[in-house]
């Protein structure tokens, strides 16, 4: 269940209340988000759409603890992240958030295996356990035979699948996907969206996705539109239902 009216109950996995973000450009204050409310339950797949500059990525950054709001709060699984210290927030991100980036953001000098292993280095897992987790994640994204390839040796779609494997390998509480298909051709984009759908449908993941692409948004269970810093409506996407 996704709500934007601020009336969601305490059981929501992600709860944002009165979320605002203002940037100062010289003497001008730019209000990117203005008192936004959001409730997302576990297992939801939400797409955020809206014109450029509407605050989609800013919202994602705030929900993922990459930025701090000017006002309001974000609570995830009972933890209010907006009150956390930078050090605690870093540890929280490692444990709870899986990021998928538009440009994949793989480390070019590391192999697919090593890229995916990165989040696991922050856990107490042994090398053998880490290897097992990485192999499982690679199998989920269908790239078990590419584990020793470097990013430059992979196609865009394959790179993004490695990015998704990296996002899910530590079994985070939710996935934040910033334009995950924005740099891909249609076919590769469809494969990535199939994968995200499968992660939500079959593996019970919670995913929040920013996209410009209506076809990508259609895959989500709920599509939210951002305009001038506020969520204006909730649309239940047809195909995913």
């Amino acid at each position: 269940m996704v709500r934007i009216d601020g009336r969601g109950d305490a059981n929501s996995l992600i709860r944002a209340r009165g979320l605002s973000k203002t940037y100062q450009r010289g003497s001008e204050a730019i209000h990117v988000l203005q008192g936004l409310n959001l409730d997302v339950d576990a297992g939801d797949f939400v797409a955020f759409m809206g014109p450029s500059g509407s605050g989609k990525t800013t919202l994602l950054n705030l929900l993922g603890g990459l930025d701090v709001p000017s006002a309001g709060s974000v609570t995830v699984a009972g933890d209010e992240i907006t009150r956390m210290s930078a050090r605690k927030l870093t540890a929280w991100r490692a444990r709870h958030v899986g990021f998928v980036f538009q440009m994949y953001n793989l480390i070019p000098v590391l192999t697919a295996f090593q890229n995916i292993e990165l989040p696991l280095l922050l856990t107490g897992l042994s090398k053998a356990e880490r290897s097992r987790h990485v192999e499982t994640a690679l199998a989920v994204v269908g790239l078990a035979d590419r584990m020793h390839h470097y990013p430059r040796q992979l196609s865009g779609g394959q790179e993004q699948r490695v990015g998704i494997a990296r996002a899910i390998v530590a079994d985070p509480t939710f996935l934040l996907c910033d334009e995950p298909t924005g740099d891909l051709d249609r076919k590769s984009a469809d494969e990535i969206l199939d994968l995200l759908e499968r992660l939500v449908g079959e593996h019970g993941k919670t995913a929040l996705m920013v996209t410009h692409d209506p076809l990508a948004a259609e895959r989500a269970r709920v599509v939210l539109h951002l305009e001038k810093g506020v969520l204006v409506d909730t649309v239940t996407a047809g195909r995913a239902r």
């Binding site: 993922g64 990459l66 930078a86 050090r87 870093t90 540890a91 991100r93 490692a94 444990r95 990021f99 980036f101 440009m103 953001n105 480390i107 070019p108 990165l118 989040p119 922050l122 990296r166």
Partner: peptide
């Protein structure tokens, strides 16, 4: 810069 930011987003501290 982006690699470093990615590492920090993944949970590596300052």
């Amino acid at each position: 810069a982006r690699e470093i930011a990615t590492m920090r987003a993944l949970g590596f501290g300052s």
